[in-house]
């Protein structure tokens, strides 16, 4: 359960602003690190919108996260160059290892997995970032080792 008082406090700050939903979403994300599911109905009610409409706005902007970030964030490039070097297969492998989907956080809160569209390191595709550190030429075989490495450090 999230702290609903905190959520209400943020939402109340924005609710009377014309078109305040976007700012409100940023406020909520700032307060919680993501936009908790539980706040969607409250925002819908505050802005007199439907929950579908609020969901539409959240999903439109890549900036908004709908899950709390895990202690370690794994980001995999999904853009052209990396794709041509096998990032699709790699992504499937990573999903298996972490047992989560893109955009999700593992149940124990350990990992989150995010898609990135180009790190600007195309020459060394495919690229994966683990906990802020960029790894080039990652393969299905060495990913686990890289992950452990991070853990051990």
């Amino acid at each position: 359960m999230i702290d609903m008082d905190k959520a209400n406090e943020v939402i109340n700050r924005f609710k009377d602003l014309e078109g305040g939903l976007l700012e409100c979403l940023h406020g909520v994300q700032q307060a919680f690190g993501y936009v908790p599911k539980e706040t969607v109905n409250v925002m819908a009610d505050a802005f007199n919108l439907s929950r579908a409409e609020v969901h539409g706005v959240i999903s439109y902007y890549h900036d908004f996260k709908t899950n709390p970030e895990g202690r370690k964030v794994v980001r995999i490039c999904q853009a052209e160059a990396c794709q041509s070097m096998g990032s699709r297969g790699l992504t499937e492998r990573v999903k298996d290892v972490l047992n989560i989907d893109l955009g999700d956080t593992s149940a124990d809160g350990e990992y989150s997995l995010e898609a990135v569209y180009c790190f600007g390191n195309c020459a060394l595709s495919p690229n994966v970032e683990i906990d802020g550190k960029l790894h080039a030429r990652v393969s299905s075989d060495n990913f686990e080792a890289l992950l452990k490495q991070g853990d051990g450090a």
């Binding site: 919108l49 929950r51 579908a52 969901h55 539409g56 999903s59």
Partner: peptide, 28 residues
């Protein structure tokens, strides 16, 4: 006038979603 549906996401990944990416039955 029910506002039960939305376009979820954008670009190629977008899709029609009922409620907050629920089934029609669970949505409004």
């Amino acid at each position: 006038g029910t506002f039960a549906l939305t376009v979820d996401g954008r670009g190629f990944d977008s899709k029609i979603s009922a409620g907050t990416d629920q089934s029609f039955l669970e949505s409004d």
